[in-house]
Design a protein around this nucleic acid. Structure first.
Lengths: 192, 192
DNA sequence: GTCTATAGGAGGATAGAC
DNA sequence: GTCTATCCTCCTATAGAC
């Protein structure tokens, strides 16, 4: 792995763990093993490094969601698969985390990937739920858009509760609670 | 308002807006109008100031929840009242926010109020839902604990989505989605 | 490409005068 | 109680040598 690559990856990790304000060029250099000169040769500074790192995190988040959504089985199973996907819960969401960083949200270039990722995710999930509703998997009264937003929120909030508790447990319980509520909207299957 | 009070309140606001790492003693002094000497006379430094500020935010959060939960009407109405309570959505949750601050979570004294507040809130809401279930307001199969955790997560995640979008809208949609799902678990009322 | 030198400013706090 | 002076470290970056 070359220096440029190590710099991006180290920045990604530090942004994840400590946020933008909490991440210094010095720390990035230390973790990546790259020197001052190397860092400023490959990037124009902290914001540039952050752009590369955030873009990568956002891309990964989309890919993982896509994988779960495109899986086999009925919609409800794919939604459950996504919600229950293995996660490093206590680490939190690398993208959602940035939402709390005023310096990130103040910079349009840093903010855009965050905004787009959640818009895409919610929209994708809403389309999936709508598909399930159209096929009679869910009852006709289900509001796909609102439900999708609630499910994404459960995930993001689950991270918050888990970190507050110091255990991954609340995350799992939140997901269980959400799926429990959703399952009640599953249209009864006629057994004929 | 005396200097000590202004210092706490300013710290509270800054912690809310910028987090612990993003808040400097200098900024606290500037916002409070107190000088260096005044600040270090009343508090032993940044951690001490943060202790006072975080404790206050946590207390307020509990009080507000208590007010909604203790209101009149059936459980479902009190839960909805809490979820739909007026909020400064784009500002986020002053307590949940701290969850992303590694320096806060690393200090037991700063962390404790955060942990306790969410444990209390989830437990309180679970007890309320259980009460509703026992009284036949919800169907017997409702998992009060998991559902309560999901609802609190929807709130915390709603803040994240709202900040990502730059609008309060996703918060409202997430709450609508959650309440929509919950209403399907309301036991049908016999009209006799 | 990477290293070292250098630099102004901010962060976080102490000391002592008033 | 509050003010000013002072301190050392870290932050973020630039310059120029190798």
């Amino acid at each position: 792995m070359d220096a440029r690559e190590r710099l991006i990856e180290s920045t990604r990790e530090l942004l994840w763990e400590r946020g933008y304000v909490g991440t210094s060029p010095k720390a990035i250099q230390a973790r990546s093993g790259a020197g001052q000169g190397s860092m400023y040769h490959h990037f124009d500074g902290k914001p540039g490094l952050a752009r590369a790192a955030i873009g990568r995190s956002a891309g990964e988040m989309r890919e993982r969601a896509d994988t779960a959504f495109a899986g086999p089985g009925p919609v409800s199973a794919r939604v459950a698969a996504y919600l229950r996907r293995e996660r490093d819960v206590l680490r939190g969401c690398p993208v959602g985390r940035l939402t709390q960083d005023p310096d990130v949200m103040a910079d349009p270039e840093l903010r855009a990937p965050v905004e787009e990722t959640f818009a895409w995710l919610t929209g994708r999930l809403a389309a999936l739920l709508e598909e399930g509703r159209a096929q009679g998997e869910f009852d006709a009264g289900l509001d796909a858009e609102a439900t999708a937003t609630a499910l994404v929120a459960v995930l993001q909030g689950g991270y918050v509760l888990a970190r507050a508790a110091g255990t991954a447990e609340p995350f799992g319980r939140a997901v269980d609670g959400a799926l429990g509520l959703l399952s009640a909207r599953t249209a009864a299957k006629e057994s004929r």
